[in-house]
Simulated scan of single mutants.
Amino acid sequence: MSYDQVLLPSGVASTPAEVDEYLTGQQGLPESEAIAEIAAELNQRNAELPEVDAFLAESPVGGGATGETLYVASDYDAIGHLRGLLFELATPRGYAVYDPQLTWLIDPADSVPVTVNHGGAGEFPYLTRKLVDMWVPELAAPNPYLIVERGPQSYIQTFTDGNGSWALEYRDGGPDRHYGLLLQDPAQVADAIWAWTTGDRGDFDTLPWQRIEF
């Protein structure tokens, strides 16, 4: 069984229903130049690997009448690798990544460039308000955490016990500046993570943070 991911232009859709409508509307249209370039690079990188290490479930990709979209699939053990390549090749060209299995639209519009580690889905190169609002309430076992990093000693992270509590911690330069608290509202957790990510420390600093000793 393969895992599908789809490229489409940033900003053309904001919901799964709008994504489906856009993808349907692109069927039969000539492949765009940018999509052809991305597809060619994916095919080349896949071909450079030994067959046992190939990341495309079906190759070559591209070359169809799909307009400004590109459908790619990988085996499950290559999901993160392929997603990383899509971010590398497509984000600078203004494309979003859609995951139809999770109905996640990962759109770089209004994003902040940080390293995001989603316990259930791997690493992402940016965060948006929509993503943090979507991800935090959905965190679940076996890896119910989300980490947003600017650097090794500058990060914010949350972990949920699955029973309505979210541990939220941030580090501001080193172990001696590590703070945490417990919250019961995932929306408040998402608000705090987004405030930290954007540098909006107004409401963030009014939370009842307590220093964590190591």
Score class of each variant (00 low, 15 high):
Met1Gly: 15
Met1His: 11
Asp4Gly: 03
Leu7Ile: 04
Gly11Thr: 12
Gly11Trp: 13
Ser14Leu: 14
Gln26Lys: 05
Gln27His: 12
Leu29Asp: 13
Glu31Thr: 08
Glu31Gly: 07
Glu33Arg: 14
Ile38Glu: 00
Glu41Arg: 11
Arg45Thr: 05
Arg45Leu: 10
Asn46Phe: 03
Glu48His: 08
Pro50Trp: 11
Phe55Thr: 03
Ser59Tyr: 05
Ser59Thr: 14
Pro60Cys: 05
Val61Trp: 07
Gly62Arg: 03
Gly62Asp: 06
Gly63Pro: 06
Leu70Ala: 01
Tyr71Asn: 08
Tyr71Lys: 05
Val72Ser: 01
Ser74Pro: 04
Ser74Thr: 10
Asp75Leu: 12
Ile79Val: 14
Ile79Met: 10
Gly84Phe: 03
Leu85Cys: 04
Glu88Thr: 12
Thr91Ser: 03
Val97Ile: 15
Val97Pro: 01
Tyr98Thr: 02
Pro100Asn: 15
Leu102Pro: 00
Ser111Leu: 12
Val112Glu: 02
Thr115Ile: 10
Val116Leu: 13
Gly120Gln: 08
Gly120Tyr: 04
Ala121Trp: 06
Glu123Ser: 13
Phe124Ala: 10
Pro125Trp: 09
Leu127Gln: 08
Thr128Ile: 06
Lys130Thr: 06
Leu131Phe: 05
Val132Phe: 04
Trp135Asn: 00
Glu138Ser: 15
Leu139Thr: 01
Pro142Asn: 12
Asn143Arg: 13
Pro144Phe: 13
Ile147His: 05
Tyr155Phe: 15
Tyr155Asn: 09
Phe159Arg: 04
Thr160Ala: 08
Gly162Asn: 11
Gly164Pro: 02
Trp166Pro: 00
Ala167Leu: 10
Leu168Asn: 04
Gly173Cys: 11
His178Tyr: 08
Tyr179Gly: 01
Gly180Asp: 02
Gly180Arg: 00
Leu182Ile: 13
Leu183Arg: 06
Leu183Gly: 02
Leu183Lys: 07
Leu183Phe: 09
Gln184Trp: 06
Gln184Pro: 01
Asp185Gly: 03
Ala187Met: 15
Gln188Met: 11
Val189Gly: 02
Asp191Ser: 08
Trp196Lys: 01
Thr197Trp: 00
Gly199Phe: 07
Asp200Trp: 05
Arg201Thr: 10
Phe204Thr: 01
Asp205Ala: 11
Thr206Phe: 08
Leu207Asn: 07
Arg211His: 11
Glu213Arg: 02
Glu213Ala: 09
Phe214Val: 14
